[in-house]
Design a binder for these strands. Structure first.
Lengths: 237, 237
DNA sequence: CAGTATCCGATGCGATACTG
DNA sequence: CAGTATCGCATCGGATACTG
């Protein structure tokens, strides 16, 4: 490793931690696991990380042998992918995420939600079901953020889903009206999709055949299936 | 948390990482899992960590709710123990350790072994078998370190094992002569106990009924059972 | 033994600006 | 799009000294 070693123990946890527990490293691995491969996509998932630091971390991970950097010479399609050893880190990332999902309070994290990050995150977990029309347009209106950040369109097309922030005069199929914190909680599995509709905090309009299975095509976070512990037992990190 | 938040994402991996991936924190958890509960014992397992930082980290972990601090008022037997949430971190620690055990090269870590740390680590995994005499004294002589650090005695007594650095004129039952790096490798499961004896790098003397089952009472690291990948595939962290 | 307060120096990191 | 170099400051953490 290019960086200086801190722990210098023969214990494998210490060795792993020397680089895995560097700032941002676990989250970079998460981005890769979520499917991002390009520098800009990874960066988009880590908006509070400086690009220069991301560059350094990726380089370290490549040097160590966790990642590979392909197509870096031709100026097209450069991408970071896991090596075999890197792929083996998936359970490490997942189990740490699952622990957090189960044990941590959510209140601090839903203050000051980064809207773009949330929508980016949602998009990559949507399910372009064959049953849906092509294209299938969903307009999400966030009713509690500044107007210029409120509208987002999910464009299900050709078995893929695009995210758009500008109104292209879409022929909208389904309209969703919701607060950004509520949306986060639903997407994370912290609150129930249907009960949000029933209590009126989420308004969803469109042909019933699409709205009634909205939770299917909308998707959820990859840890949404992990149940949280009772609120009184949750930790305030 | 008293410290400032870095990631500020609603992602549970990010939330967990806010404190789990602080410097030294994973290793503190390891110490607790290895059975240490007192400040000094924990510190002994982390010789390169300053006590003031350990103090701060423990305080943070207590504040978050991962640890409890018992008996801190009376000046006796103060101890740190896991809460329910903290105990649930065991798989997180283990899986990260197991990944390291499987995938990382060992060469950097066996340069400059901290002898006291190794012996401390060995002691807490020894097995005081009922079959052994009481007391049962093992003298370990490290043949490649400065003379004043070479001798260590394991004292199996009353179903417990003590570690001693001073010759108390012990009535030694078993004598072990070995290099410190070789000892580390055997203890970590990186090399085989018996083959080390056969190739002469480890000399063990005493009644055959004790020496032939030496690997049983000597014990091994808690990740020694995880097999390493082929050397050519290992990562240089 | 079981910590804690203070001090100050190293370095990690973000901001900015730049290249191909 | 895909990074990299430089600069300067904030903060992290080690050393030291101290307390109960």
């Amino acid at each position: 490793m290019t960086a200086k070693l801190i722990y210098r123990q023969y214990c494998p946890l210490a060795m792993s931690s020397e680089f895995l527990c560097q700032r941002w490293t676990m989250l970079i691995l998460r981005e890769l696991l979520e499917g991002s491969t390009s520098f800009n996509d990874i960066s988009r998932g880590l908006p509070r990380m400086s690009r220069s630091l991301l560059s350094r971390r990726l380089k370290e991970l490549v040097e160590i042998g966790v990642l590979e950097h392909k197509n870096k010479n031709p100026d097209q399609n450069a991408q970071y992918t896991f090596t075999q050893a890197g792929k083996a880190l998936e359970p490490v990332v997942m189990i740490m995420a699952e622990w957090g999902q189960k044990w941590l309070t959510v209140e601090p994290s839903v203050e000051n939600i980064d809207v773009d990050l949330l929508m980016w995150d949602i998009r990559r977990h949507t399910n372009p079901l064959p049953f849906l029309p092509n294209p299938f347009i969903v307009h999400i209106f966030l009713n509690d953020v500044p107007e210029n950040m409120a509208s987002h369109w999910l464009v299900f097309e050709n078995n893929d889903v695009d995210l758009c922030h500008i109104d292209r005069n879409f022929d909208v199929d389904v309209e969703i009206d919701i607060g950004v914190r509520k949306l986060t909680k639903i997407w994370m599995g912290w609150e129930d999709f249907d009960s949000a509709i029933n209590d009126g905090e989420m308004i969803i309009e469109g042909p019933k055949k699409y709205t009634k299975i909205a939770s299917d095509w909308f998707g959820q976070s990859s840890v949404a299936h992990i149940k949280k512990i009772a609120p009184s037992l949750r930790l305030n990190y």
